[in-house]
Design a protein around this nucleic acid. Structure first.
Length: 504
RNA sequence: GCCGCGGUAGUAUAGCCCGGUCAAGUAUGCGGGCCUUUCGAGCCCGUGACCCGGGUUCAAAUCCCGGCCGCGGCACCA
């Protein structure tokens, strides 16, 4: 009865997916490489895929594409972090696969393609093949018959070839305008003695490439709709050959543009190398200057905010640079009803007040309209801290209201101390005098705060003082620091609480 | 260089396939007001865009051609 207004204006809905009728069901997937925790761009594919599966009451599959033990080496902890990130985003998957555990399947399909004479073992050196390919000519190994190829394939499995000495290629179209499409590599040998795979170690030496593994698995897992970034556009062309040979129906594909997040770093490889070179300069893979999901979470961005941002971008093929102001606006709306409001003063300046009766105690609700409980502030000495920012705007003789407490009249402003005298208690007087209303913190009984914020690539740490109830907050709690902004409790130490500023 | 995909307000997005209802909607930003013990939230008002040039048509953001610009791909990476 009371809260009918919750309906709000209808949320933006995703456009329909193509050809749903003819497939009968919708199965989508998110297929990350566990070489690093996921970022906003990856999350876009994950969220959209999940949302569509949900919209059509279909299935959503999580598949780790960890078939490169050497160049994009999977990190053991990433599998778990990716799962955690997805779960945090509110994504639930119906099935989960790890490609490095499906090697026998890839071998089977590869053999099948060899038998059908659609694939061959290429013994050319990479540079030699490239010359044939650029000329649009067949390399000599292309004409081997299936029996010869099968024999070579078995030899590779038996370990008779080393990394770089042989690859399995799919026969495509030697005159295709994009040379990379011509007889692309399905499988290659990796020196797993040197580069053991984090999950299967050195058990396999012949590894499928992305295009082969993804193509096979999408079909085998019944995927009907693939949603991915436009950097994958050629891969569709490549994989189409394989589907045609095997008589499979290729899933519907939607390619969307890249996402950028204003002021933050998305690139996995950039983050990885910097983190490796200068670990001391960063707070980890969830450093708040990165656009990893872990970083956004650490910063106090709510999962619902990320979901809304991604859905609002839709399926547009154009690149999008999401502005931080936009994220902040959405997050503010989402955090506002659940965030406790507390007093924090940065660059504190002491105010000595005369003419007050002590001790004085005030009880203030954590939220003006939601029931989030109350907290107490006790004043035992006639001294409070206010922020330098507010002091700068004061003049001797001006009246200012200490929020929820009383009004004071400023007498004198020295460099580090303001002296004031009690003026009145009620809010109406403050209003009538147009007195500024500012937050404050008692000089006794308070909590030291390290406020961390990101200013472009610069990390800013500010020492602030907050009311004592801040020490009672849970780690990870999202709060609103009155007149400063929203933040998240990052760490609680004995004598200090670290809060990360999300946004104003 | 070659191949592919795009270009709607400061930012993002809807509309484009199936031309008129689009003197272009929405969100955010910005300006102003109301409300409020926050410079927050909410409510109200305002601001501001179809890349350029041709063509087709009674009619083009929407269709065609050319140009310009941006992005992606061109791996024994994913």
């Amino acid at each position: 009865m009371l809260e009918q207004k919750e309906v709000k204006k209808e949320e933006r809905v995703l456009p329909p997916l193509p050809n749903v009728e003819s497939w009968g069901v919708v199965v989508t997937r998110f297929a990350p490489n566990p070489d690093f925790p996921i970022h906003l761009g990856n999350a876009r594919a994950a969220i959209l895929s999940y949302e569509y599966a949900k919209m059509y009451k279909g299935k959503f599959v999580l598949r780790f594409e960890d078939t490169d033990p050497r160049i994009k080496r999977p990190l053991t902890f990433s599998y778990k972090v990716v799962e955690d990130d997805l779960a945090w985003l509110g994504i639930k998957w119906d099935e989960e696969y790890i490609q490095s555990l499906r090697m026998e399947t890839f071998y089977e399909i590869a053999k099948k393609l060899i038998e059908m004479n659609y694939a061959y073992v290429d013994l050319c050196k990479a540079e030699v093949f490239r010359e044939y390919r650029n000329a649009g000519k067949a390399c000599p190994h292309r004409n081997q018959d299936p029996a010869q190829n099968m024999e070579l394939f078995e030899k590779i499995l038996a370990g008779e070839f080393r990394e770089g000495e042989a690859v399995i290629r799919l026969k495509t179209d030697l005159s295709h305008p994009d040379p990379s499409v011509r007889d692309w590599v399905m499988m290659r040998i990796v020196d797993v003695e040197r580069y053991p795979h984090p999950i299967v170690g050195d058990r396999y030496r012949l590894w499928p490439t992305y295009n082969f593994a993804a193509a096979v698995d999408d079909h085998l897992m019944g995927v009907t709709h693939i949603l991915r970034g436009k950097e994958h556009a050629v891969n569709t062309v490549k994989q189409l050959f394989l589907y045609k040979y095997l008589g499979w129906r290729y899933p519907e594909v939607v390619h969307f543009g890249r996402v950028g997040l204003e002021g933050l770093i998305l690139s996995k490889s950039w983050i990885k190398t910097r983190l490796k070179e200068h670990p001391e300069r960063f707070m980890g893979f969830d450093d708040i200057r990165f656009a990893t999901i872990a970083a956004l979470r650490r910063r106090g961005i709510l999962p619902e905010t990320i979901r809304e941002v991604i859905i609002s971008l839709g399926l547009s093929p154009t690149d999008a640079r999401v502005s931080w102001a936009n994220i902040a606006a959405i997050n503010r709306k989402n955090a506002d009803p659940i965030a406790k409001r507390l007093f924090v003063v940065c660059k504190p300046v002491k105010v000595i007040i005369s003419g007050v009766e002590l001790p004085k105690e005030v009880e203030i609700p954590y939220h003006p309209s939601k029931d989030l409980g109350k907290r107490r502030i006790v004043l035992t000495k006639p001294e409070v801290y206010v922020s330098e920012y507010d002091v700068q705007k004061l003049a001797s003789g001006s009246v200012v209201r200490l929020m929820e407490l009383f009004n004071i009249e400023v007498k004198q402003i020295d460099r580090n101390v303001v002296t004031a005298v009690y003026h009145s208690s009620d809010l109406e007087t403050a209003r009538r005098l147009s007195a500024p209303i500012i937050q404050w913190v008692p000089c006794e009984n308070n909590t030291r705060i390290e406020l961390v914020s990101a200013d472009g690539m610069r990390l800013r740490r500010t020492l602030c003082i907050g009311e004592s109830s801040i020490a009672l907050l849970r780690k990870d709690e999202i709060i609103q620091m009155v007149r400063i902004g929203f933040g998240r409790v990052d760490e609680k130490k004995k004598n200090r609480v670290r809060i990360i500023l999300a946004h104003e």
